[in-house]
Nucleic acid binder design. Structure first.
Lengths: 348, 348
DNA sequence: AAAACAAATGACAACGCTGTCAATTTGGCG
DNA sequence: CGCCAAATTGACAGCGTTGTCATTTGTTTT
């Protein structure tokens, strides 16, 4: 049967409290004793019982992921990353999908906290960028980490994992410019996302640096959806002086743009280059495969979770090495350019 | 602060044990007493503490979802459905993604059960259709529900939620036939999935019933992927006597088929009809939108979870109404034909 | 070498609930 | 009315941890 802390204590010849100290990495345990205990833990394959810990302790061993995102790929990636971090530290994950339209997120948050003791929260866009949600989380006194587009980190950098959309968009645009493109269309994502603005910013910066003037006519507002990509690209391509390249704000839109181009019998990439953003499976389910910026969602989530876990832990009175605590946690990601088959030289 | 069972007991003027009886729906509580307690529960917004329950009780209030499926849409749908059922009954969900290639699922199962007391399991394809996994689950004495294609339910119907792929495939094919199609290509999914065979079966039955002979040349083996859809459709359309309609075994393949057709400048649905299966977001991200069979994954998952929860509960010694226990749980689903824009009259 | 202090360890009571079993109440019946 | 079985209720001991605080052991200091 499963072994308990008593078994370990007996085997190591110490009290259960000492075992508790060792497995919680508390100070005031002699190295020799610590070793004895760890050996016993090893031998018995001991794993602390989560229910007991949650019940007895002041701190909890559960974190929650709150999301409201229609993009299944994104959610799954996030989840997997967080799960990985949790598993490594013996925490449990509570999944909480939420619909910001039909329910009041703040109420849900409160209920969540009251019902299950939760150690911390991982917030993803759009919640992570919504002030009222952030305020509520703070009010509840919860540890949290927000996964946000760089612009939304403000004075809260300690609690953010940032994605530098601007830098990545800059790189993508630069790639197009280096391929001789001078007229580059931009399909913007939803206004409410901070990333939308960041990506546009990067696009503009790259053009400016290359001395190419910005043509507002080539910037089409839209949403992060396939349909929006289709209509945006159409609008662009039906112009008198159409662009030779299109920067779609995400892969889904790029797929739509690709489709629109195909409908108009435009060859990709010979006559038109198209880029996406995110490196979601979408970008591999098109023909040709999309040039895009790889956004390591799973890794991002893993870092976010690790950060929350550290926060929760450091609250517990005694903490040994709080110095290099956050070692190995990247707090700022720059999606990397991934050149595939949808971009090429500008047709002169 | 959060109220406990003691608060409720005090307010209702009974012992905590009686409160426990009421919230667990145990018999032997006088209606009047029950009411008093329920009023107190109501007034105090009492919610039983999960950690305490898990620790104290013999049964657990956690079920697990084990999956190994690359289709993010599918997984999210499943998850949401299960989560809904869990929330309704006060259970918690443990998510366990697994990779059958890199790890041994059976070991993972064992670890899962030993570590966290788990009340039951929801298994999805391909695990739900893998004998060795099923055997292990049984050996561990776990309650489980398998979500399977009808063919795989065998003598285990009590533990299965079935999806009748054959019936749905029959309906889809019939729809094509009714539109005058006589040469219908079939793009098959992965051999290892039971659904693949079921769908092919339905296709054949419909043809036979319509008196159309089955042309093996029109049945192309493949996988449930976009690329497979592209190449399969190409193979079909490059034939001397190409089909006028293509039945792709899922939406992803259908999207691929659509793309291949587009590349060959074939108009959809004027020159060629294409159908998918599943009604995943894929089917709405194509142009034209796909005719498909709606597979209510979220609902299926919800039923599966409800069933597991019932199993787990009925084990607990005292159960009042075990008669109509499974009321409202559908155990067999037939995906429903959804006619959209990718199918039309056969040219000719 | 003893006193004084700090570090390491342990005993024991929670945590909020369920399970067991004993105590009490109820209702039916002679 | 009183007695007995059945139905209802309650007292209390865990479940496997952590937190508190007392105790023991080790290390300085003088």
């Amino acid at each position: 049967m499963k072994s308990t802390i008593n078994d370990v204590a007996a085997r190591a010849g110490v009290s259960i409290k000492t075992v508790s100290r060792v497995i919680n990495n508390e100070p005031s345990v002699r190295p020799a004793t610590r070793q004895k205990v760890m050996d016993a833990v090893e031998a018995l394959h001991y794993q602390p019982n989560l229910a007991a810990r949650n019940l007895a302790g002041t701190r909890s061993y559960t974190i929650a992921l709150i999301y409201d995102n229609p993009n299944a790929y994104y959610v799954i990636d996030m989840q997997n990353g967080i799960l990985e971090a949790c598993k490594a530290r013996g925490y449990e994950l509570l999944i909480h999908p939420s619909n910001s339209k039909s329910t009041n997120v703040n109420d849900e948050l409160r209920a969540l906290v009251e019902h299950s003791k939760v150690a911390g929260l991982v917030l993803t866009p759009p919640f992570s960028e919504t002030q009222s949600v952030i305020d509520e989380v703070k009010k509840l006194g919860l540890d949290y980490v927000r996964i946000v587009s760089s612009g939304a980190a403000e004075g809260d950098e300690d609690n953010c994992i940032q994605v530098d959309d601007t830098a990545a968009a800059f790189d993508i645009t630069k790639h197009l410019i280096e391929n001789g493109h001078k007229r580059i269309g931009f399909l913007a994502g939803g206004e409410e996302h901070v990333s939308t603005h960041g990506r546009l910013e990067g696009y503009k910066e790259a053009l400016q640096q290359a001395g190419i003037s910005i043509d507002p006519d080539l910037i089409i507002p839209g949403e992060y959806s396939f349909d929006s990509g289709v209509s945006g690209a159409k609008a662009l391509l039906e112009k008198d002086n159409p662009p030779t390249a299109i920067f779609a704000s995400n892969d889904e839109m790029a797929a739509g743009a690709l489709f629109a181009a195909r409908l108009m019998h435009i060859e990709i990439p010979a006559q038109l280059s198209i880029v996406g953003f995110e490196d979601s499976p979408f970008s591999r389910q098109t023909w040709p495969k999309l040039t895009t910026a790889h956004q390591p969602n799973s890794e991002i989530a893993k870092c976010a979770a690790a950060l929350v876990l550290n926060k929760a832990r450091s609250k517990s009175a005694s903490e040994s090495a709080s110095a290099n605590k956050d070692a190995g946690i990247t707090k700022k990601f720059v999606p990397e350019l991934l050149v595939r088959d949808s971009t090429g030289q500008s047709p002169a």
